[in-house]
């Protein structure tokens, strides 16, 4: 992925190292190596590689990570303008608000 990087100046990821207990969950779930362990705490080493999927925040039991997560999908964003729903992937169905494009 070294040759594929996306716009990185609007990433909403925030990490509060003071709350980190070193449980390692964020280093396991991040698909882009944004966190690594350093001593007995996690360290945010590559914020620009974050794709805002929200896996780290969801798996941090200590409220140390915050990110406004969502899908980086233009078709889903366009669909959300029309149905005023959440930006989400996949086909429209009875209780999903999002109607994405071909991504899922």
């Amino acid at each position: 992925m070294a040759d594929l990087r996306y716009i990185d100046d609007v990433i909403t990821l925030e990490f509060d190292v003071e709350k980190c207990t070193g449980c390692q969950q964020c280093t396991w779930v991040c698909p882009h190596g944004v966190f690594v362990m350093e001593g007995n705490r996690a360290r945010l080493v590559d914020r620009g590689a974050c794709m805002e999927c929200g896996a780290c925040e969801r798996n941090c039991a200590f409220d140390a990570i915050h990110v406004q997560s969502g899908v980086g999908c233009a078709a889903a964003i366009i669909a959300s303008w029309f149905n005023r729903g959440e930006v989400a992937c996949g086909p429209a169905d009875e209780n999903a608000s999002g109607t994405g494009g071909g991504c899922c």
Binding site: R5, G70, A76
Partner: peptide, 20 residues
């Protein structure tokens, strides 16, 4: 091409919003 962001493995919501 912009619609291919959804199929890619590394684009973020706020990045795509900015791009759009």
């Amino acid at each position: 091409a912009m619609n291919f962001t959804g199929a890619s493995t590394y684009t973020s919501l706020h990045g795509v919003e900015k791009e759009m």
